[in-house]
């Protein structure tokens, strides 16, 4: 195969492969009633290498954990982190964030 063909093939693969974005985990948390609770969960999750960012919603009593690309956190680990922070898990929902946009 000529070098030009290889370049064209690589370009084609690149523009048709979805980007591997991180996963979003929505955790329903019991006992989360104040800013101290929210701060505690932020601090504990922020120490995890796999965590890109975290957002706490006191109205919904949920914690939104954005996981870094190619990383993962198991339900067991999420539950342990919440319990270690002093709270209980009500639910865990995962959303894959694979993008249809080409990675350029």
């Amino acid at each position: 195969m000529k070098p030009l063909h290889i370049l064209i093939a690589l370009f084609t693969i690149t523009i048709t492969t979805p980007a591997l974005a991180g996963q979003t985990i929505t955790v329903g948390v019991n006992g989360m009633v104040c800013d101290f609770c929210a701060r505690a969960l932020e601090k504990v999750f922020a120490k995890q290498d796999a965590v890109e960012s975290i957002s706490v919603n006191l109205d919904e009593k949920t914690v939104l954990v954005n996981v870094k690309d190619a990383e993962t956190i198991s339900d067991e680990d999420v539950t342990k982190l919440i319990n270690d922070s002093g709270y209980d898990v009500r639910s865990i929902t995962r959303t894959e964030e694979d993008s249809d946009e080409p990675a350029l």
């Binding site: 019991n30 006992g31 009633v33 009593k61 002093g86 709270y87 209980d88």
Partner: peptide
């Protein structure tokens, strides 16, 4: 020492 915590959806 936290002897006991009761976590509920709306209260603690």
């Amino acid at each position: 020492n936290l002897l006991k915590r009761w976590n509920n959806e709306e209260s603690q």
